[in-house]
């Protein structure tokens, strides 16, 4: 039995389609409602829906053999897993954004609001810039508007949320997309099944 961790939400729906196109269908997953676990007895697989941020935890600790996680989550959590494939879906960017009229004063400690403290920390460490991280759990765009922070580090997809709040991207930290990850131990003992899935996903991507 191969256990697969799918992210909940929008990315999860895209991943479901990718797997379905590759021939792996989990009955009921297209309309999951409150159900979390779905079986595919034909291929001896089981998938479960977890918070996108938790996918690497399930995989690293072996509760899931493989999973799909955004690169943002992998950069933030830095799990000890195999990153086997770029699924080329869920494309977006990790970026620094600020108010349209923002002027950076390099002598000041930069206040950074973000849901991704590790990514922000590593990025500014690479620039040698002192920062003060303000860790938020959503609606990060509001922080510079209210003067809580100077900039934000956040995921930018179309940029429309930024625009609506008078913000603009000032630098791109990293390109993001969904990745297929695998537990290092499970990869060795369930290699045939995992390779089979990779082949299926590859021919369709």
């Amino acid at each position: 039995m191969l256990n697969i961790a799918f992210p909940k939400g929008r990315l999860g729906e895209r991943v479901r389609k990718l797997f379905a196109d590759a021939g792996y269908i989990f009955p009921g997953l297209e309309n999951p409602e409150r159900k979390l676990i779905f079986n595919n007895d034909l291929n001896n697989m089981r998938c479960f829906r977890v918070k996108p941020f938790d996918v690497p935890v399930y995989v690293e600790r072996g509760a899931a053999d493989i999973g799909v996680a955004g690169r943002d989550v992998l950069l933030e959590r830095n799990p000890d897993v195999y990153e086997l494939m770029d699924l080329n879906t869920g494309l977006c960017k990790m970026a620094v954004a600020a108010l349209n009229n923002f002027h950076d004063n390099p002598e000041k400690v930069l206040r950074v609001a973000t849901e991704f403290p590790e990514i922000a920390k590593n990025y500014y460490a690479s620039l040698g810039r002192d920062i003060d991280i303000i860790c938020l759990r959503g609606s990060v765009e509001i922080a510079p508007v209210l003067g809580l922070s100077d900039v934000i580090v956040d995921i930018v997809e179309t940029g429309s949320t930024l625009k609506a709040n008078n913000l603009k991207v000032i630098s791109v930290i990293s390109e993001l997309s969904a990745r297929l990850i695998a537990n290092k131990s499970a990869y060795k003992f369930k290699n045939d099944l995992i390779n089979q899935i990779m082949k299926g996903l590859n021919t369709n991507s």
Binding site: G62, K184, S185
Partner: peptide, 25 residues
Amino acid sequence: FSTTNDPNYYNGIIFKGFVDGVPEC
């Protein structure tokens, strides 16, 4: 060859052992 370890410490042959059912080496 994806088996790696700290290159400032190790040289030559390196190895890691896994047991089915244990998630780490």
